[in-house]
Simulated assay, not measured.
Amino acid sequence: MNVTIYHNPACGTSRNTLAMIRNAGIEPTVIEYLQAPPSRQALEKMIADAGLTVRDALREKGTPYAELGLGEPTVSDERLIDAMMAHPILINRPFVVTPIGTRLCRPSERVLDILPDTHKGPFSKEDGEPVLDAKGKLIAGA
């Protein structure tokens, strides 16, 4: 299965998502989007395919969001995308694209919606929180 993750290795959610993809027996294409951001067209497509608004895909924490005045309700989607293109740190992460669908994987378990059911046994997040049981099935409440 062809899977692409727009990844930030400094982000725990992104690392957990990547590990879940690999736990499914898939070695994805990993794009470190801070060094190689998606094109405007690709970003707009990911946002639309994930069923999100542009604002839903915008990251505030640890970004120049406030300094750029992006919190004003009158800021257009076009201006938000312009800001994301100029400052890729504003793109929320991780986005994952598969033939099954596209998701912004926050929380990381959202990736399970777009992966085949081929998980190799149990999986726990970096912090020890269990996500999949010994049979590779989602644990209730995860």
Rank of each mutant, 00 (worst) to 15 (best):
A10S: 13
T13R: 04
S14P: 09
S14L: 08
N16T: 10
T17D: 05
A19G: 13
I21T: 02
N23S: 12
G25M: 13
I26V: 14
I26D: 05
P28E: 09
P28N: 07
I31R: 09
I31N: 04
I31Q: 03
Q35F: 13
A36C: 09
A36F: 09
P38V: 14
R40D: 12
K45S: 15
K45P: 07
M46F: 09
A48D: 11
L52K: 05
T53E: 06
R55S: 04
D56I: 02
D56Q: 04
D56P: 00
A57D: 02
L58W: 00
L58H: 00
E60Y: 03
T63S: 05
P64M: 03
Y65V: 01
A66E: 13
L68R: 00
L68K: 00
L70F: 00
L70R: 01
L70I: 01
L70Q: 00
E72C: 06
P73K: 06
T74S: 13
V75A: 02
V75N: 02
D77L: 04
L80Y: 05
L80I: 11
I81V: 15
I81G: 03
I81N: 05
D82S: 01
A86F: 08
A86W: 07
H87K: 12
I89D: 10
I89A: 15
L90H: 04
P94E: 02
F95W: 02
V97A: 04
T98F: 07
T98P: 07
I100E: 11
T102S: 06
R103P: 00
C105G: 02
R106Q: 09
R106T: 02
P107A: 12
S108A: 12
E109F: 04
V111Q: 03
D113C: 04
I114T: 01
I114Q: 03
K120Y: 15
K120H: 15
G121H: 13
G121W: 13
G121S: 14
P122W: 12
F123N: 09
S124R: 14
K125Q: 13
E126Q: 12
E126H: 09
D127C: 08
